[in-house]
């Protein structure tokens, strides 16, 4: 292989540094004008970083008090924040006192519902109180939102509220009660029905009152115990009654609700 050939196939770029230099200059020349602001921007950032580093180091060293110019700036900012915070606190406190005032007022009004002025005031206040309640009840609403006109809805609500207040003052505590008739079935015709009834009546609960009972013939000598009870709706459920009665498994085969009525 000749030297020329060698050189022709030369794969090493001997004067690369020169080209690089030229390229660098070229781009520097081209980007020169825009370069400057960027650099200053970068500089400020760098400076900031440096300052922050300094600060961190200082605070780490535990002599943060020797504040540089920037630190004083931060301190002043913090002060303004503190001031703002205090203002907010004041506002919250004002609101709180206002709310407690309202509360006491409402309580006072509720205490004297029959009084003439309260009837006038309550309609104005009740809607606020009732609104969330209505929302809560939405999950019970089987009809979705109804496309009632605002006017109509408002009218209805107004009337309702009036009625509500009236009713409240008239009969403050009516305990909803139901009358339940239970069929208690034994295992066979030889079950001691007297003992069975004793067991049933031994079930005690708040809001549960056992009433009269009788034995009803079923067939083939089997009798069932039909027993009456009165329950307070919020306190006693049929599940609980069934559960408690069927616990006497030596006597009781099953329990059915024969009648369930409002009182």
């Amino acid at each position: 292989m000749s030297a020329a050939q060698c050189l022709a196939q030369e794969k090493i770029w001997f004067d690369k540094s020169r080209y690089d230099e030229a390229e660098r200059r070229y781009y520097e020349g081209m980007n020169g004008p825009t370069h400057a602001p960027q650099e200053t921007g970068a500089n400020t950032i760098l400076q900031d970083i440096a300052r922050a580093r300094e600060n961190i180091q200082k605070s780490l060293a535990g002599n943060a008090s020797q504040g540089a110019g920037d630190q004083s700036e931060l301190v002043s900012r913090m002060r303004s924040l503190e001031l703002e915070n205090q203002n907010l606190h004041n506002v919250v406190q004002d609101l709180r006192s206002a709310l407690s005032l309202l509360e006491s007022r409402v309580a006072a009004l509720e205490r004297t519902p029959a009084a003439a002025p309260s009837v006038q005031v309550t309609p104005a206040q009740q809607p606020k109180v009732r609104a969330p309640v209505e929302e809560d009840d939405d999950d019970l609403d089987l009809f979705g939102s109804d496309e009632e006109e605002d006017e109509e809805a408002e009218r209805i609500r107004e009337q309702r509220v009036k009625e509500y207040a009236e009713r409240k003052s008239k009969k403050p505590t009516i305990i909803a009660k139901s009358s339940i008739l239970l069929d208690v079935k034994p295992w066979d015709d030889e079950t001691d029905m007297v003992k069975l009834e004793e067991c049933v009546r031994s079930v005690q609960a708040d809001g549960l009152l056992w009433g009269s009972s009788k034995l009803v013939p079923v067939g083939y000598g089997i009798k069932k115990l039909q027993i009456q009870c009165v329950v307070e709706d919020d306190k006693v459920g049929t599940d609980m009654l069934e559960e408690e009665i069927t616990k006497f498994e030596d006597y009781v085969q099953s329990v059915d609700v024969a009648a369930f009525n409002k009182i």
């Binding site: 009433g211 009269s212 009788k214 009456q228 009165v230 009525n261």
Partner: peptide
């Protein structure tokens, strides 16, 4: 009815 005395009046 509230006293649960009579079964007959609980069956309306």
């Amino acid at each position: 009815r509230e006293r649960g005395i009579t079964i007959d009046i609980s069956l309306l």
